[in-house]
Design a protein around this nucleic acid. Sequence first.
DNA 1: GATGAATGAGTCTTCATTCAT
DNA 2: AATGAATGAAGACTCATTCAT
Lengths: 201, 201, 201, 201
Amino acid sequence: MPKISDEKRAARRAQILEAAWTCFQKDGLHATTMDHIIRASGLSAGAVYSYYPSKDDLILAAVATSLSGLSAIVAPLLHAEPPMSPSQLVGEITEAIDRFASRDGFDLKRIALLGWSEAQRNEQLRATMKSFYIDFRCDLAGALKRWRDDRTGVEYDVEADMAAALLSLVLGYVVQSAVIGDVSPQGMVDGLAQLERAAVE
Amino acid sequence: MPKISDEKRAARRAQILEAAWTCFQKDGLHATTMDHIIRASGLSAGAVYSYYPSKDDLILAAVATSLSGLSAIVAPLLHAEPPMSPSQLVGEITEAIDRFASRDGFDLKRIALLGWSEAQRNEQLRATMKSFYIDFRCDLAGALKRWRDDRTGVEYDVEADMAAALLSLVLGYVVQSAVIGDVSPQGMVDGLAQLERAAVE
Amino acid sequence: MPKISDEKRAARRAQILEAAWTCFQKDGLHATTMDHIIRASGLSAGAVYSYYPSKDDLILAAVATSLSGLSAIVAPLLHAEPPMSPSQLVGEITEAIDRFASRDGFDLKRIALLGWSEAQRNEQLRATMKSFYIDFRCDLAGALKRWRDDRTGVEYDVEADMAAALLSLVLGYVVQSAVIGDVSPQGMVDGLAQLERAAVE
Amino acid sequence: MPKISDEKRAARRAQILEAAWTCFQKDGLHATTMDHIIRASGLSAGAVYSYYPSKDDLILAAVATSLSGLSAIVAPLLHAEPPMSPSQLVGEITEAIDRFASRDGFDLKRIALLGWSEAQRNEQLRATMKSFYIDFRCDLAGALKRWRDDRTGVEYDVEADMAAALLSLVLGYVVQSAVIGDVSPQGMVDGLAQLERAAVE
DNA sequence: GATGAATGAGTCTTCATTCAT
DNA sequence: AATGAATGAAGACTCATTCAT
């Protein structure tokens, strides 16, 4: 049989990945069987396996896709001009996550929790997530630096800790949102603002 | 064998739970098989099942135990006199978590991630975690209120958002610690302090 | 400890057997666990096993008890004076079975089916049932002989086949009653009468 | 492996069912494990389960197959022209059952008892059997009607009771045959004949 | 004698993966 | 290349029976 073109291959991969994504986020990583994914993809078992050689690969790909989707959405916020303040960042990012999450009934937050959990057992997945979050934090640090430089005219050096704190706020928002369910971006912004204000009272 | 004493029963339950805890945190919730737990507990399958009627019960018990252990460690911090400042709280709590986590080779943070993930599919577990975190946030709000009242002599009303933000910092610390691994309590404290300072510059 | 008196032993055996009987007829032979019986009997596992060394023994005893209960109820009919006609016998016996069956919510017919089924696998049970039914058929033959001798003044010898046919009618009644559920003793009597009448038309 | 043809599928189903049939009638319904059936079928566990999704389905299918096999054998007798007399019917049907039973070492009577027993606990099975026996009785009634109409030139209406009695004779024959083992079709015929004769003496 | 906690082989079923066609 | 039937090694859980106390 003739070789399949590269675009076809890419399209197939995307088709499978989308099916996996949907299944994973609906049923969780372990309750999703390959059969679910195979059916959802509309392909045959053999076909799916020829594109992704194992379920773990599919999990990795699905999580990586989520991360890069998130990345795409968050990037403009991190590089916005003029740069945002910390609480603006927290507000805009959490809001963006909510927006992304609710697109097409997908829930990014659920995938995030599933991914963190799975990362404990899957070396490669952990590496992927680790480097993603490190990049995220770097960009966050960059954004904070630009904001402070703009405001003060002074060049600060290390916003690493600030970035970590800010990332914590975002991640903690995701957890609370998924587990408790009663948080809002505005609440986070207000909470941080109060924290800042209280410090100087 | 005649009727076993209540303490013996409790001891057996603890023995099984400890085995489960260890397995869960080493291999994750799903990769841990009942057989692993049974072997680790040193009992027979029937004995284990007579104390915990299903794997889900064991998961629930393991997570609940983690939560209440954490609760016991954090409570004194939340009710300390004089009340702590927000950044002190973040520092002390994250440090307590680290300390608790490293006791006996257990890693509370990993169990936390596993629990959040599992809570997506296990109604009862989600309920348990939800009420735990709501309580946590309440106590956090109480601690913040006492701190502000002490400092300002004024009675503030709503620290709900502040508490949510603070809880986010703690949860986000847990995530970063488990997934990235390069955060420290001191870093969080410094990060928050910088956030506060930056706001007024 | 002092030896238990023989009456006590007998009472205990009866108590256990009754519990087993009830469980068996409610849930079937295989779905009934020893634990069910143990709980229903109000004794301990060890106690039950000291009276009946295995579940199979209990099954055997329960079926044997049913059979002898049935026997006690049917005997007077078979030895009634004056002797009954075949259709009277069918009517009275099936009616007696119905009556016996509905006592205390027990259903003799269900136990009968369960016993027949189990007899396929349990040598001893089959032997017990076999000898019971052979006796039953003998008594039936005796009753028929007395009836014919009375009527005709002649001594017939072999009513074995008649007895087998009559027993079939009774057993078939039990099956239809348990599986279909729309038969009545009167219907059987009428059916047999019609069969007889049709033969001479 | 590409898509399998419908005949192949049917052949596989038959292959599995035959294995199940053999196991069931040798060991009984509950003592037969899926593993027995799987080994007997020569397939793998997964393959068997892909054709019959549970043991209960297999039981149902085995019993249903027995019933329809029986049906096929008995039907010609019930619609024979000229119609048979009651005792002829009893004789021919029981003989047909014996013949069917001994084919290939299968024993239809044993399966019948097993099925009746199982029907007490399996709703679907009971429904299947019930409708089978009702149909059987209807056909029996039809056969009896045709016989009487032929003989008397009169149209009788209700042979329902006669049919029930005749069915009892057949079912009772099965029970006695399986449990006692010393009955023969000829004995049943003779027994019924004697019953008829005795009635008019 | 009595107790009931403990045993552990055995049950049904699932599902990631392969490979003959 | 693609198919999807087949594989078979686990998996969670049960339950008749035993025996230390």
